[in-house]
Computed example of a mutant assay.
Amino acid sequence: MRRRLPLAALLLSATLAVPLVIAQAPPQVPGAPDKARVAAGSYAADPGHTMVVWEVDHFGFSKYSGIFGDVTGRLVIDPTNPAASKVDVAIPVAKVTTASSGLTDHLLRPGKDGGKPDFFGAAPADAKFVSTRVLVDKDGDEAKVTGNLTLNGVTKSVTLDVEFHGAGTNPFNKKATVGFDAETTIRRSDFGISYGIPMVSDEVELTIHAAFEKE
């Protein structure tokens, strides 16, 4: 015959189990899409967590992507006047990454017999983006950021569709951090890169994931 525990013992057991359940609750990520968390000031790009993903159409069969990483630069932002925000970043084209070593070499190889390279060449200058205007939507979490993009020695005005991703404090270095996602499409022929058009699309879709840490 099974012995029944007294009611007091059952209540005590349940009470002792509560702290264990609380202790096992999953941790919360430090960033959140809360504009109130954004502190005014100057922020440096986090090169380890900022990237520009490019995508082209290859022969009409498939999409092909690559990444520019190690982005450096600065963001100046004031939550009370987001339209006055400014961003100035450099993207090291020479560090382009693709899924194919052969294609990466093709992007960076010099022109044959001293001629013009097919794409960037062996020692391309950093691309740069410097904002000139910021138009923020009424909710304050999306914006159109227009600026001058310099690529392959050519400067053109480009507008980014930007969305606020999140803000908070980095738990490792204790720095206030803000993050954004952005998209735009450019024509590479506008920047003097016309190799393979139209077999490889002239239109290049850019997706940007950017994190900035307060200086």
Rank of each mutant, 00 (worst) to 15 (best):
G41A: 05
V136S: 00
T207E: 14
S85A: 13
A182E: 12
A84C: 01
K174V: 02
K112W: 02
D137F: 14
V162N: 13
E203V: 11
H165R: 09
K63I: 05
K128H: 05
P110H: 04
R74F: 04
F129D: 00
P47Y: 12
A90P: 00
L7R: 11
V200P: 02
I186Q: 10
G48D: 12
Y43W: 06
T146W: 01
D118W: 10
V130E: 14
A32E: 13
G60E: 06
I208M: 11
K138F: 10
A39F: 10
P30Q: 09
G115A: 08
V52E: 07
G111P: 12
A125C: 01
A17H: 02
G48A: 10
A125E: 02
S194Y: 01
S194W: 00
S85W: 03
A83L: 02
L20E: 08
G60P: 10
L7Q: 01
E213P: 03
S42Y: 01
A182Y: 07
P47D: 10
A122H: 09
A90K: 14
G168E: 06
A83G: 09
V71R: 00
F212N: 08
G192E: 04
A210F: 05
F191H: 11
V76P: 00
H49E: 09
N81S: 12
K35I: 15
T207L: 05
A125Y: 00
E213R: 08
L12P: 03
L151D: 05
V53P: 05
P30F: 04
Y64E: 05
D78I: 08
T155C: 06
A14Y: 04
A210D: 10
T150E: 01
G121I: 13
N170W: 02
N170D: 15
I22A: 02
A17M: 13
T177Y: 03
G147R: 13
S85N: 06
K112N: 07
Q24H: 07
P27H: 11
I91G: 04
N148L: 14
D202E: 11
A45Y: 01
D105F: 12
D118P: 04
G73Y: 02
T184V: 07
P124R: 07
P19Y: 15
A210P: 04
G66K: 04
P79L: 06
D88A: 15
D141Q: 14
G60S: 09
L206V: 11
A143C: 07
S62A: 08
S13P: 00
V162A: 11
S65V: 08
S201D: 12
F164V: 03
G31S: 11
